[in-house]
Amino acid sequence: MTQASTPTLVTVAERAGVSRQTVSNVLNSPEIVRPDTRERVLRAIDELGYRTNVVARQLRTRRSFLLGLRMPPAADGISGQVLDRFLHALTEEAQGSGLRIMLFAAADDEAEIREYENLRTTTGIDGFVLTATHSGDTRTRWLSDHDIPFATFGRPWDPEPAGRAAEASAEGVPPKPGHHAWVDIDGRAGTRAATRHLLDAGHRRIAFLGWPEGSGVGDDRHAGWLAAYEEAGLEHAVVQRAEDGVAEGTAAANRALADPGVTALVCVSDSIALGALEAVRELARSEPDRAPVAITGFDDTPVAGAVGLTSVAQPIDQVAARIVEQLRAQIDGRPEDVPDHQVLIEPRLVVRTTSRTEHRR
């Protein structure tokens, strides 16, 4: 294509039948443009082969259009699936909003904070996405104190003093940990649905296989199992805890199944559930007269579908979309345009063969 025929904002605007400013809005703030208009402009951009001058845009806006994300530590092929899916969904959502994801590595939270400082200095990065939130999370306090846009996949797990949020709002002070933008999956609702599913099938002694106490996510999922039992007016059954992993799940299931009354297992993750599945298969071989044991997992990883494991599915695409929406609003200086800056998304139970057998009392 010759220089004379290189498409510009003006030629794109003429092709789409809109103003030059509308084209600029589609490129820089697509969420403020009506969907049908945005689609028409994007189609014109594709047809003409228009490419934005990124350097010029950065100089004009003094923004990098980059979001930083610490590359999650290597995990086993089962547990790592959730963060892999999130990273893919986040990248797609960011691109659709005119942003890019920059990955970086850090050994721990303190190293991650050092990278925040480094990236702000060297790249002028616009904001950060955080994962793996936990009690005592120093990252959120540092970002809040430095007035840097960020959002987290995961809730803050520290209890907040009563009235703190209202006081902060009234005083007009920057949000502190607990008041920042976050999106999370309602783990309590997920395990509650799984437990109710098993109760409806006739099971009454349902063991929970969870992570060690103190894990915010794990404790949240345990609370759902507990809530379903309380709603049913039944005494709580067996709880066994283990680190996440298939072998650990097998060991925890064996401990739970030492109680001959246990007929079902609600597992905190698919990794634990797959280990439990192996324990149940071995039990069926060694005690053929024992009733089948039902199992549910959490995360609905691809392996769950492959082995017929009932599991709780996390709508990761929705999480990524809301996080990008929150960050884009912060970066553009219009956080009030996102009314829900703390979002809890309910997961969905996917029923498969491991829990379909009804238990006859």
Rank of each mutant, 00 (worst) to 15 (best):
L66H: 08
H179R: 15
G305F: 11
I113P: 15
G68E: 05
V26C: 13
L9S: 03
I45D: 12
P7K: 00
E325P: 05
D200N: 15
R255N: 07
T263R: 03
H359V: 03
D84T: 13
A181K: 02
A273I: 04
Y229W: 10
A294I: 06
A162W: 15
D244Q: 11
P347M: 12
T191I: 01
E325G: 00
P156N: 09
D126K: 11
N25Q: 12
S269Q: 04
Q326D: 04
E243T: 04
T2P: 01
V33W: 02
P159D: 13
D220T: 11
G124P: 02
D184C: 00
V303H: 13
D84W: 15
V82D: 02
A232N: 14
R40D: 12
R221K: 05
A256E: 01
P72V: 00
E31L: 10
R221D: 09
V10C: 04
G172I: 08
G261Y: 01
L103Q: 13
I323G: 03
S271T: 09
P35S: 05
G245V: 00
G275W: 01
E112R: 10
A223F: 10
D337M: 03
L277Q: 11
Q326I: 00
D259E: 02
T52C: 09
D184G: 07
R348G: 08
R70Y: 03
V280K: 04
A247W: 14
A151M: 02
L66F: 06
R328F: 03
A16F: 11
V12W: 10
L265E: 11
I185P: 06
R155H: 13
E282M: 07
D244N: 14
T2E: 07
Q240M: 03
T2I: 12
V238L: 07
H179L: 13
R20V: 03
R221A: 07
D108Y: 10
V18M: 06
T354Q: 06
S355R: 01
V129S: 04
L199E: 01
I125D: 02
P149D: 07
A166I: 09
D46I: 07
F150Q: 01
L234A: 12
R192L: 12
E278Q: 13
A170N: 14
T250K: 15
D299M: 00
R114L: 08
S5M: 15
L103I: 06
L99H: 05
L309N: 12
S269T: 11
V55K: 15
G98L: 04
I101R: 07
A162Q: 11
L119W: 09
V10N: 13
F298E: 07
A56H: 11
T91Q: 05
L344R: 14
T152L: 06
R139A: 13
I113Y: 10
H88K: 14
Q240G: 05
N25E: 11
R57V: 06
I185A: 02
D337W: 04
R57F: 09
L283K: 08
E325N: 10
N53F: 06
D300I: 05
D200W: 11
C267D: 04
